[in-house]
Nucleic acid binder design. Structure first.
Lengths: 223, 223
DNA sequence: CAATAAATAGGACCAGTGACCTATTTTATT
DNA sequence: AATAAAATAGGTCACTGGTCCTATTTATTG
């Protein structure tokens, strides 16, 4: 659905049969990306995976860059959608909601899709402006949930400090991907690592002050 | 030095002029990787960057995989070397040493070399066994420093818990790379983020218990 | 049903790319 | 100086990849 909406470039179609095709194409591309990285993403393989010819693929995506961008859009949208879901559910206390989100994200890191796709995204973002933009948009959404809860858990924080804390929490969890993600050396200890993260983040979020964030780097106890 | 030592495959040389050449080749490869990712790393560009012909490059590296592996070895060795330096310096209290290391690592994340190279490494490690092995070896070294200090700061932790905490701390800092690294949206706020990390990690490391890591995920205060 | 648009396949083209080979020059060794 | 080894350039080759073109088939619509 979203993919077809995004496909509004001239010369491309977005109708009946085309909708399924675009979906199949993007799914094929995503599978290739997960299986072998962007390095492994060729139009011929994408076409083969989608069960169509290269010529036909070219009918939907006149160049590789367009396909890549639509792929990024599609995958990122799916994660944004997940975050929106998390934002609604919850229910309990802010603390419990916060911990629930931490657990949700670290659990998601354990899937092959996330473990393999995101490092590709981070690498792409270093050299592709569009990838960088989409990635930024995704994580802004991801941090929105955290920001909301941190504001409740620690009302004294300025907006700037709060966003810095949210960034730290979010980035920290993302950082677990190459270490405790799918098939990684620490994958089996993800439950314990999740506990460490939940405990650490919760204390940090509730106890940190604007002064210590700005301040001259002295430890909390020393001032 | 290290690069030439590693270059012991049959058919290749490691002598007088060859030493400089290998260095130049690897530097050229590293620059290309940083500038455009693995995607941008071609033998012709490497040769051009090193100021030699493709045929000559082939004399030193009979195939691209060997070159990539030597490149990974070289870069990773340089980081290992840095960690060893950090391990020696220090001097102050364990708390100060710990904070110093956190600052050192997050500062390093701000360099273009680190910001661009590591996401490539993480992506490569998803599909290349050798890259995964070398990456693992690197981070074991990086965590060794943290492990050592955590053992002092929190002697009650079991070895397993301590290593999990060290992994969390290390991975968290790495996770900042795509967000607060060189040229990234939060790069300007790296000092504040560093403070947040230092404060959060130090409290976590000194106060966490084996039970809360293993335990049923209850927050510290509730037990 | 005719006509128009959408969808598809097949292939051609051309710019790389990695790998390889050979001849030549430079450097080291005796 | 003579010889062997190392270092280097240049070219070739098979192949892959992105892009483009054309003809054909399949829907859609008036």
């Amino acid at each position: 659905m979203c993919a077809v909406q995004l496909q509004v470039r001239p010369g491309t179609a977005a109708f009946s049969k085309g909708q399924e095709r675009v979906l199949k194409i993007l799914q094929s591309a995503q599978e290739l990306m997960i299986a072998g990285g962007y390095h492994n993403l060729t139009l011929r393989k994408v076409a083969a995976g989608a069960g169509i010819s290269v010529g036909n693929l070219n009918y939907y995506y006149s160049n590789k860059q367009d396909l890549l961008r639509d792929l990024l859009d599609k995958v990122i949208e799916s994660y944004v959608w997940e975050f929106d879901q998390v934002l609604q559910s919850a229910g309990e206390s802010p603390e419990d909601q916060f911990v629930a989100i931490v657990k949700f994200i670290i659990e998601d890191i354990g899937t092959q899709e996330t473990t393999h796709f995101f490092p590709e995204l981070w690498a792409l973002a270093n050299h592709d402006e569009y990838a960088a933009d989409r990635m930024d948009a995704l994580y802004i959404k991801a941090r929105a949930v955290l920001n909301h809860l941190i504001a409740i858990l620690n009302p004294a924080l300025t907006e700037s400090s709060r966003e810095q804390v949210a960034l730290f929490v979010s980035a920290s969890m993302e950082g677990l991907t190459p270490f405790a993600g799918f098939g990684k050396p620490w994958a089996t200890q993800r439950p314990e690592i999740t506990n460490i993260a939940a405990i650490g983040f919760l204390h940090l979020v509730t106890s940190i002050t604007n002064e210590s964030i700005q301040g001259g780097l002295s430890t909390p106890k020393s001032r």
